[in-house]
Design a protein around this nucleic acid. Structure first.
Lengths: 128, 128
DNA sequence: TATCTGTTATACATATAATATAACAGATAG
DNA sequence: CTATCTGTTATATTATATGTATAACAGATA
């Protein structure tokens, strides 16, 4: 799986890395049980520090996307990513809310906004 | 217009303030030409520093939500907030993308996601 | 035994967030 | 004219976040 980082971006490197791995899982380029590189090798490949990769991995682990075994290394959660629950639902509501507020102010119609969401959803199902 | 800040939140204070003003405009609690408090009085009311308010105001000004006249004070943009353009469209795409990636991983259906967006959209049109 | 793993601990540099004062220039009310 | 309020700018300080750099430890493996 290809990962491209923008070192000039305001978005922290560990966040970019995290989001690209999540996108990889969403696109099924990464499947349950698939191995991920070790923190050291991935850091080396990307030309960044071991701790930056580790921070991304730790958060992915904490959120249930991956498991980290002392023996087996790092793998995409074999049981699948935990499904939506109440806490997650309220979290994405909080994240979407300000985006929609802005869109309303800028005269983005509900239809245009929903169409954009459909388009992005489609992007994650193209390989199924 | 009532503003509630969470000083314990990870979200910066100036971002909370900015988003609540934008939400106020979206809900039409704030209309074109309406005055906003001076940086000093708002800072005093909220119990925060003048510069924190100023930072929020400067960004709102830079993004076209408000105007700041030396004479007339701070007002919601009398010409209305600039409508969506290509740059803004690509920006919200970037912001929504990782949210949808996560939702796909967590088995949030497209229908459920769209329904949430509709619900939030409705919240901003309840007073029209 | 040597090497690779995740993990932890320090240390350092830089940037951001938030506060605290202070001052300036323009406008306004008394 | 004077005093006050406006946005703005400039410094300084504190705390936290980000990213890097080394180093070490313990478990697993070849």
């Amino acid at each position: 799986m290809y990962i491209a980082l923008d070192l000039e971006s305001e978005e922290p490197i560990y966040t970019q890395l995290k989001n690209q791995i999540i996108a990889g899982i969403a696109k099924k380029e990464l499947r349950s049980g698939d191995p991920l590189p070790s923190v050291r090798s991935l850091a080396s490949d990307l030309g960044i520090n071991l701790h930056t990769v580790n921070k991304a991995y730790q958060q992915l682990k904490q959120e249930g996307f991956i498991l980290i075994h002392r023996q087996k290394g790092v793998v995409v959660n074999p049981d699948g990513v935990p499904s939506v629950d109440e806490a997650y639902w309220s979290e994405i509501t909080k994240r979407i809310h300000p985006i929609i507020a802005e869109s309303v102010c800028r005269n983005v119609t509900e239809q245009d906004f929903l169409q954009l969401c459909r388009q992005i959803y489609a992007e994650f199902q193209s390989k199924e």
